[in-house]
Design a protein around this nucleic acid. Structure first.
Lengths: 146, 146
DNA sequence: ACTTATTTTGGGAAGTAGTGGGAGAAAGTG
DNA sequence: CACTTTCTCCCACTACTTCCCAAAATAAGT
């Protein structure tokens, strides 16, 4: 499981070096490959290949002859892109994804359980402060352990 | 599994070069051959030969004496055409299919799990924006992960 | 505190991908 | 059977992507 935050930079070729701390939590099955796509929030989501496979399996079970489900499959896949780390542990982030997330040079990398998120730092701070509830309020509702 | 979108062009001879990223996901068994046919939506569907074989097997199991099923079988087959990639990884798209999908020079190529779809870019954008529901709504209903 | 190892960042060279067009082969036509 | 048209295979150019080498920065160990 991924956790923590890191401030890295994306070079002129669109490459991002994945933090060593996060790399340690990537399974062997991932073959050093990742799938990145748009997040529901204004960020980029990165899944290790083995985790992405689980998503694909769910998509395969859907009925493509159902209009709604077909549309959903296209939406999930259209912005997905796979890449393998180079010898320096970097992956190439497509410009289109960077534009969507408003990321230029500086990136905020968040470890979020099974995936990694990339944020524009300012946008993320706005997102946090824009929350109507406090962390304590959300925590008490979401984390109630039976 | 195919994923991602690509903007390519169809040359004056009706040839389309398949994106390298999609080619990497084609099985050896496909023998560099593809079967293309009409999509359910206004697009062209392209199956690697090995995947198409699975579809044919399913069609064989249908009941040809059922009017609806017979009709479906004809729809799938009458516009199907097989072609093998040339040395430049291109396949020839029949003019009739291009006309159906409204594709002229510019093509939007979509990787959709086991098949590849070709769209007119404007038509696809219209298709996406025509959804009454948001991505989040569909996602929360369809993808609920246990 | 200094040395060593690892991590992050930068850029040049080589290879690949996408596109266009021409010559020869095959097919269709009168 | 000769002619025209269509199709297929081959070569070529440009732009981009990947691979490789290396410096700078951070972390770890003695």
């Amino acid at each position: 499981m991924f956790k923590g935050q890191f401030l890295h930079s994306i070079d002129s070729k669109g490459r991002l070096s994945l933090p060593a701390r996060l790399r340690k939590n990537v399974a062997e099955d991932a073959d050093n490959s990742f799938v990145m796509t748009l997040g529901i929030d204004k960020c980029i989501e990165i899944y290790p290949k083995d985790q992405w496979k689980l998503i694909e399996e769910k998509l395969l079970k859907l009925n493509f002859f159902d209009q709604r489900e077909a549309r959903f499959i296209r939406m999930m896949l259209q912005n997905a892109q796979e890449d393998t780390m180079d010898a320096q542990s970097r992956i190439l982030i497509p410009q289109s994804l960077l534009d969507y997330a408003g990321i230029k040079n500086e990136v905020l990398i968040l470890g979020v359980l099974k995936k990694i998120e990339l944020w524009n730092n300012e946008i993320y701070n706005g997102y946090l402060s824009g929350s109507p509830e406090t962390f304590e309020q959300i925590a008490s509702q979401v984390m109630r352990m039976e």
